[in-house]
């Protein structure tokens, strides 16, 4: 079974999950929990409780959570392959949370930080490579978010999987954007960059890994789904 085929199957099973109220409740709970960091920090900032440069702190928090959700979404497939844990029904929520955090990250930069000064914003995007990369990632995420629904998966067929490979580009781009934005080399951006690289690198290695595991164990991994 190819990677694309499993992903499509997962998309269909995601649609089926609606028939199971507790499953769909779990997904909605993830959405609700996912927005807690943003809501909590926004409240702290709006009530003057973030010391120092509150807007920058809020902006950075949104960026880092965007990256976390994106990496979590990309970890779903290897986690199922290698550990037998299937979180496939949460993947769309993780991906969309990443998208909304990127949107909030950009809006905070554009509205709160730069006060909608378009000349400054456009100059930043054009002249500062880490901002150019960040902006490109946001643009690339838009078609992914727009097609994160059962109808698009059915309509696009195999093209849906091709399109959503852009998530790998965005993960690497997002981690690079983060690493380039900091003043000094510290462990944290490297951890994100390494995780993104590992999760992306897993994809081309996946067929070989799955073949090896099937040879090792006669029982097919399918029952783990």
């Amino acid at each position: 079974m190819t990677g694309a085929a499993t992903d499509r199957a997962a998309g269909r099973s995601g649609g089926r999950a609606a028939a199971w109220p507790w499953r769909s409740a779990a997904v909605w709970a993830l959405y609700a929990a996912g927005f807690v960091p943003a809501a909590w920090y926004f409240w702290l900032g709006a009530t003057g409780r973030i010391p120092g440069n509150a807007i920058k702190e809020f902006e950075h928090l949104l960026g880092i959570w965007a990256l976390r959700f994106l990496l979590a979404a990309l970890a779903v497939t290897p986690l199922r392959d290698l550990a037998g844990i299937s979180l496939m029904r949460y993947r769309r929520a993780l991906g969309l949370l990443a998208f909304w955090y990127v949107v909030m990250h950009f809006l905070t930069y554009m509205v709160l930080d730069k006060n909608l000064d378009l000349a400054v914003i456009l100059a930043d995007i054009a002249r500062r490579p880490f901002i150019t990369i960040g902006m490109a990632c946001l643009v690339l995420l838009i078609p992914l978010a727009a097609t994160s629904n059962a109808l698009s998966i059915r309509r696009l067929g195999p093209n849906w999987n091709r399109l959503h490979r852009l998530a790998y580009v965005v993960a690497l781009g997002g981690a690079t954007h983060y690493a380039m934005s900091v003043k000094v080399v510290t462990a944290e951006p490297f951890v994100y960059l390494a995780l993104a690289a590992a999760l992306v690198l897993y994809r081309p290695l996946r067929p070989a890994i799955l073949r090896r595991r099937r040879r090792g164990r006669p029982a097919p991994a399918a029952r783990q789904g």
Binding site: A46, N53, I55, D124
Partner: peptide, 21 residues
């Protein structure tokens, strides 16, 4: 190289919605 030095945020002034830029 990575950001403008033309303006600054004055810490402790203004707030979330009207930063002391």
């Amino acid at each position: 190289p990575r950001w403008s030095q033309a303006s600054e945020i004055r810490i402790g002034e203004g707030g979330f919605f009207s930063p002391g830029r």
